[in-house]
Lab assay of single mutants.
Amino acid sequence: MASQGTKRSYEQMETDGERQNATEIRASVGKMIDGIGRFYIQMCTELKLSDYEGRLIQNSLTIERMVLSAFDERRNKYLEEHPSAGKDPKKTGGPIYKRVDRKWMRELVLYDKEEIRRIWRQANNGDDATAGLTHMMIWHSNLNDTTYQRTRALVRTGMDPRMCSLMQGSTLPRRSGAAGAAVKGVGTMVMELIRMIKRGINDRNFWRGENGRKTRSAYERMCNILKGKFQTAAQRAMMDQVRESRNPGNAEIEDLIFLARSALILRGSVAHKSCLPACVYGPAVASGYDFEKEGYSLVGIDPFKLLQNSQVYSLIRPNENPAHKSQLVWMACNSAAFEDLRVLSFIRGTKVSPRGKLSTRGVQIASNENMDAMESSTLELRSRYWAIRTRSGGNTNQQRASAGQISVQPAFSVQRNLPFDKPTIMAAFTGNTEGRTSDMRAEIIRMMEGAKPEEMSFQGRGVFELSDERAANPIVPSFDMSNEGSYFFGDNAEEYDN
């Protein structure tokens, strides 16, 4: 993207840094990872977990959730003011799984939030270390993106479920800051804005008074975040219109849905970061690795190297396929839920299948599930090659597409044709070009129609051997075009429920 120079890199967003050079960025990201790792080690000690239990991804998720809940100030305040039966607002906890007599047992633990905050700050040299908290939120978000298709949420806001490739980060909490905003897809931002506008339509006082002023500035800020994701002048001009509207209503909703559809071809720039579970960072720190000293990046080879040398386990339900569970977590670790499966298959070195073909449910185990038949197995999170994460949407291309997802959002900077089903997408653009945004709409449609099938995206960008740390010898991959490109292809993934 041309304006790259004016933006802070995501590592800076990730670490609240002012302008830093590459070495400083690597050190501050490393410091953040160190903090998460030290916190995780301490929690495993508190909970008396064995090494194996500490490497269980379900335990990692519970521990991450506990610290996120302990620092969720708004919710904590709300819980104190609106006490609900049987919930102690000062405590947080969740299921911890232990191996007892050759069987997995679930144990519900409860801790004072104050105590968890103390352990977290102690692991982070006394700081609140917001960057580390956001990092864990993005890992949870990436896992949700890989596990669930947001059909219901899309339909509720009037969008087409086939636009799911635009929904990265749709389950990120509001408090995820600049680093969170960077990884949100165009569809996620559109959905947040539509929800806001709908509230304004239904509630006369939404934009009024002292609160209304705050609401208005939040609305304009979200519009600017979305505008910054678009790469064409016409899309940005249309966002200006939406932002400046005196009284946002149905016309703005129409414009936003139009823009979301246009992003299936004229893709937005959305950041991709490899955020790993805390149970990967903990053992690495415990083994003596100093992330701050060595430096770390979320968008280069580092996460690949770390996963190459990590042992992570997962509980497996009786009829689940461990290899499929591994694929789910591998995609989440690489922030690749909406990437082209052919690119992923090449990088991973084994075939990556669409969601609907995987015999696996989510990673988390519900409290009512029976533990008797639970097994555990090693997650295979290694890769054959590594590639640089991208934040450009890439230019655009036609490809055989599917009944489910009709476009992709690249996660890796790797040369390819970008699949999208042009006739299906263009069919949504018939007729409606009147109104105050008509010239911009016409211009956007013209650009979409001009998108050429034979153009290559990320020209000359390749993948790298894991021994090639400096990215000196790019390998331009070859793809098996007979395979499906979309992950949520004609899909039956479970729906995400809060």
Score class of each variant (00 low, 15 high):
161 P>H: 12
301 I>N: 01
26 R>C: 10
104 W>I: 10
44 C>K: 00
105 M>Y: 00
79 L>K: 10
467 S>L: 14
38 R>A: 02
426 M>F: 00
242 V>F: 02
443 E>I: 10
359 S>L: 02
212 G>Y: 03
177 G>R: 12
232 T>H: 15
469 E>I: 15
426 M>A: 00
124 N>T: 09
242 V>H: 10
89 P>V: 00
250 N>S: 09
344 L>M: 07
14 E>S: 00
76 N>K: 08
82 H>F: 00
28 S>P: 00
412 F>I: 09
106 R>Y: 10
88 D>K: 02
151 T>A: 04
219 Y>F: 14
177 G>A: 14
183 V>P: 03
180 G>N: 13
147 T>Y: 10
394 G>F: 10
285 V>Q: 07
150 R>G: 13
481 M>R: 15
262 S>K: 07
102 R>E: 12
30 G>T: 09
209 G>C: 05
495 E>F: 13
137 M>P: 03
399 Q>R: 15
137 M>H: 05
268 G>K: 12
221 R>L: 12
77 K>P: 02
472 A>K: 09
113 K>G: 08
258 F>P: 03
264 L>P: 01
268 G>M: 12
370 N>Q: 00
271 A>G: 02
281 Y>V: 09
363 V>S: 06
287 S>I: 05
339 E>H: 06
134 T>E: 10
366 A>Y: 10
73 E>F: 15
326 S>N: 07
323 A>S: 05
441 R>Y: 05
108 L>Y: 10
99 R>M: 06
166 L>W: 10
340 D>R: 08
346 F>L: 05
109 V>Q: 00
224 N>C: 13
486 S>K: 10
198 K>V: 08
322 P>F: 03
489 F>A: 10
188 T>L: 07
88 D>F: 13
35 G>E: 09
81 E>L: 00
137 M>V: 07
259 L>V: 13
381 L>T: 14
3 S>F: 02
160 D>R: 09
101 D>R: 08
366 A>C: 07
493 A>I: 13
161 P>G: 03
395 N>G: 02
385 Y>I: 15
125 N>W: 15
31 K>P: 06
217 S>G: 04
87 K>W: 12
118 R>S: 06
256 L>Q: 09
33 I>Y: 07
66 M>I: 05
483 N>C: 05
331 M>E: 10
463 V>M: 03
253 I>W: 10
63 I>H: 03
58 Q>S: 05
391 R>Q: 06
134 T>V: 01
149 Q>K: 12
110 L>A: 07
18 E>T: 02
401 A>H: 12
100 V>A: 14
76 N>R: 02
413 S>N: 04
455 E>K: 03
395 N>Q: 13
329 V>F: 07
293 K>W: 10
159 M>A: 03
291 F>Y: 06
218 A>N: 09
188 T>K: 01
486 S>W: 10
4 Q>K: 02
320 E>F: 10
485 G>Y: 14
217 S>L: 13
486 S>G: 10
111 Y>R: 06
2 A>K: 10
229 K>M: 11
281 Y>F: 08
450 G>F: 15
64 E>P: 00
334 N>D: 12
22 A>P: 05
289 Y>Q: 04
164 C>L: 06
124 N>Q: 14
445 I>R: 01
150 R>W: 05
484 E>C: 11
347 I>G: 13
163 M>A: 01
357 K>W: 11
434 E>Y: 04
219 Y>A: 07
6 T>M: 11
337 A>L: 03
149 Q>R: 12
263 A>V: 13
417 N>T: 01
307 L>K: 11
278 A>F: 07
314 S>I: 05
413 S>W: 10
247 N>R: 03
267 R>A: 08
291 F>V: 08
470 R>G: 12
377 S>I: 02
349 G>M: 08
41 I>R: 01
157 T>K: 05
486 S>D: 10
472 A>N: 12
84 S>C: 00
165 S>Q: 06
154 L>R: 07
96 I>K: 06
33 I>W: 10
297 S>G: 13
350 T>S: 14
157 T>Q: 02
329 V>D: 07
200 G>L: 13
286 A>R: 01
256 L>G: 04
341 L>Q: 05
169 G>Y: 02
387 A>G: 03
436 R>G: 14
214 K>R: 06
398 Q>Y: 00
141 S>T: 12
276 L>E: 12
50 S>E: 03
357 K>T: 01
251 A>Y: 10
346 F>G: 00
169 G>P: 03
353 S>F: 02
403 A>K: 00
51 D>C: 04
305 K>F: 05
366 A>E: 04
477 P>V: 11
272 H>A: 11
331 M>S: 15
261 R>I: 12
76 N>Q: 04
318 P>K: 00
52 Y>G: 02
47 L>C: 02
449 E>M: 10
268 G>S: 15
461 R>C: 12
291 F>I: 13
227 K>R: 06
255 D>S: 11
339 E>W: 12
174 R>S: 06
25 I>Y: 09
241 Q>D: 12
407 S>P: 10
189 M>S: 00
86 G>L: 13
297 S>K: 10
385 Y>G: 00
76 N>L: 12
422 K>C: 01
99 R>V: 15
80 E>M: 04
442 A>G: 03
177 G>N: 05
175 R>V: 14
63 I>C: 06
326 S>E: 11
343 V>M: 06
424 T>Q: 15
41 I>P: 06
468 D>M: 10
63 I>R: 03
161 P>R: 02
132 G>Y: 11
473 N>K: 02
441 R>V: 07
127 D>H: 15
496 Y>R: 15
448 M>W: 12
374 M>I: 05
211 N>E: 04
380 E>Q: 02
174 R>D: 10
408 V>W: 09
132 G>V: 04
257 I>A: 04
139 W>D: 10
42 Q>N: 06
226 L>H: 08
33 I>V: 14
488 F>S: 06
102 R>C: 15
145 D>Q: 10
290 D>N: 01
373 A>R: 05
267 R>P: 06
169 G>W: 10
299 V>N: 10
44 C>W: 01
69 S>W: 10
84 S>V: 15
363 V>H: 09
271 A>Q: 09
319 N>P: 14
449 E>H: 08
28 S>F: 03
118 R>K: 00
487 Y>P: 11
326 S>T: 14
322 P>C: 00
308 Q>C: 01
478 S>I: 06
80 E>Q: 00
374 M>E: 10
432 N>Y: 04
404 G>F: 07
466 L>A: 01
476 V>K: 12
490 G>D: 11
87 K>D: 12
112 D>N: 03
109 V>G: 05
234 A>F: 08
216 R>D: 07
376 S>W: 02
299 V>D: 10
340 D>C: 08
375 E>W: 07
244 E>L: 07
326 S>I: 02
361 R>M: 10
270 V>F: 08
29 V>W: 06
26 R>G: 13
484 E>P: 14
444 I>P: 09
328 L>N: 07
66 M>N: 14
198 K>H: 08
187 G>D: 13
110 L>R: 12
60 S>V: 07
290 D>F: 10
100 V>E: 14
418 L>V: 00
385 Y>H: 03
444 I>V: 01
482 S>V: 13
495 E>N: 01
447 M>I: 12
457 S>R: 12
335 S>H: 03
146 T>E: 14
420 F>V: 08
81 E>F: 00
175 R>W: 15
101 D>W: 09
91 K>I: 06
114 E>K: 09
140 H>N: 05
459 Q>R: 15
322 P>W: 13
438 S>H: 15
80 E>S: 05
282 G>N: 12
27 A>T: 02
253 I>Q: 06
354 P>A: 15
398 Q>I: 01
315 L>A: 03
332 A>C: 11
337 A>Y: 04
80 E>W: 14
394 G>L: 10
215 T>L: 03
136 M>Y: 04
52 Y>H: 06
111 Y>I: 15
7 K>S: 13
236 R>A: 12
452 K>A: 00
259 L>G: 14
339 E>M: 12
380 E>A: 01
417 N>G: 02
433 T>L: 09
95 P>T: 02
441 R>Q: 11
266 L>D: 10
352 V>N: 10
217 S>N: 04
412 F>W: 12
248 P>F: 07
121 R>Q: 02
431 G>T: 00
33 I>R: 07
18 E>R: 03
478 S>C: 13
494 E>H: 14
91 K>S: 04
